[in-house]
């Protein structure tokens, strides 16, 4: 069902919410053309405010990073490695000689980054208001009428996705991130970004279909001469995998992705132990001091 043109899960209506089926995104930079249709679609559907322009100087990327008012972000990565038939530099016009002679060790990759909808989500665990919930499709959703803007989810996310929106943008003070288009999904529609994607670089579908598809895709690319193709889905860390996962060429770090992301709750045990020992130590110290010194 995945990646089959008109029948693709990216275009047809679905009932995943009603069926409580776990959904995901598989984003493939080898298909991405860097058009930013996903960014535009996301902003328009979700009415995400314009957060201003900053000339970054980072390739074609002036969006900078994911944030409270940027829920899709197309990375433009420049690397000193050849990428198949991608041409760069001066060309003679004769395609064949360009391909054989002018190919330089340079590749320009695009990857549409998004909230990972973690299996174990740091933001969700951190939220003290219960504003962040897991939906029927196992995505992570911020209920904005409940969030009081404490900002604890911001330091709970190991991927730097969720952020508190600054004034003077609308709804400032609350935390925002990709909703996985929960509203659209609830009425059977495909997330706006995936639907607008012209190359199906953003592939939407049930996670149990996406994962085998992703494994096949990596094999395919390796056979086609991309030895450094791999899927980025940290299933063996405390995050236990992500529902919006990626194909990457090369190191995850180049995409701003930590190689082994950990959910911050793994630190709780050591930290609370220290807190209780200190607390009772302080109590004991005070009692002893007053007991023995007058």
């Amino acid at each position: 069902m995945i990646g089959e043109g008109i029948l693709s899960t990216n275009q047809r209506k679905h009932t995943y919410v009603r069926d409580q089926r776990t959904v995901g995104f598989y984003t493939d930079p080898t298909l991405c053309i860097g058009c930013k249709a996903c960014e535009v679609a996301c902003k328009e559907w979700n009415d995400v405010p314009d957060d201003g322009f900053r000339w970054s100087g980072n390739s074609y990327d002036h969006t900078d990073a994911l944030g409270a008012s940027t829920w899709r972000h197309v990375l433009f990565i420049e690397q000193d490695q050849p990428r198949g038939r991608q041409l760069a530099g001066p060309m003679s016009g004769d395609l064949l000689s360009d391909l054989t002679e002018h190919e330089d060790p340079f590749r320009w990759l695009f990857l549409s980054d998004v909230c990972k909808h973690c299996e174990e989500a740091g933001c969700l665990e951190a939220c003290p208001t219960g504003s962040i919930i897991r939906t029927e499709t196992q995505t992570v959703l911020v209920q904005n009428d409940i969030c009081n803007g404490c900002g604890y989810c911001v330091v709970g996310c190991p991927f730097g996705v969720i952020d508190r929106r600054k004034k003077p943008l609308k709804d400032a003070g609350g935390a925002f991130k990709c909703t996985f288009c929960y509203d659209r999904q609830a009425s059977g529609l495909v997330p706006a970004c995936a639907k607008a994607c012209p190359t199906e670089s953003i592939l939407f579908g049930p996670l149990d279909e996406l994962r085998p598809h992703a494994a096949k895709r990596v094999e395919q690319l390796k056979a086609a001469g991309y030895p450094d193709a791999q899927n980025y889905d940290p299933v063996d860390t405390s995050v236990k995998g992500i529902h919006a996962f990626f194909l990457i060429l090369g190191n995850p770090e180049a995409y701003g992705l930590p190689a082994k992301p950990e959910i911050p709750t793994i630190h709780l045990k050591a930290s609370w132990t220290s807190a209780f020992l200190t607390a009772f130590g302080a109590l004991g110290l005070s009692l002893l001091a007053f007991a023995f010194l007058k």
């Binding site: 053309i33 860097g34 058009c35 930013k36 249709a37 960014e39 535009v40 679609a41 902003k43 328009e44 995400v48 405010p49 314009d50 957060d51 322009f53 900053r54 100087g57 390739s59 074609y60 990327d61 002036h62 969006t63 008012s69 639907k195 607008a196 994607c197 012209p198």
Partner: peptide, 22 residues
């Protein structure tokens, strides 16, 4: 949007900054 992306190779919209670059 999808059509525009297919034909133009790029899409512009409110708050999405593409406007060229080095």
């Amino acid at each position: 949007l999808r059509q525009e992306a297919k034909t133009q190779g790029r899409v512009e919209g409110r708050g999405v900054d593409i406007a060229g670059s080095p």
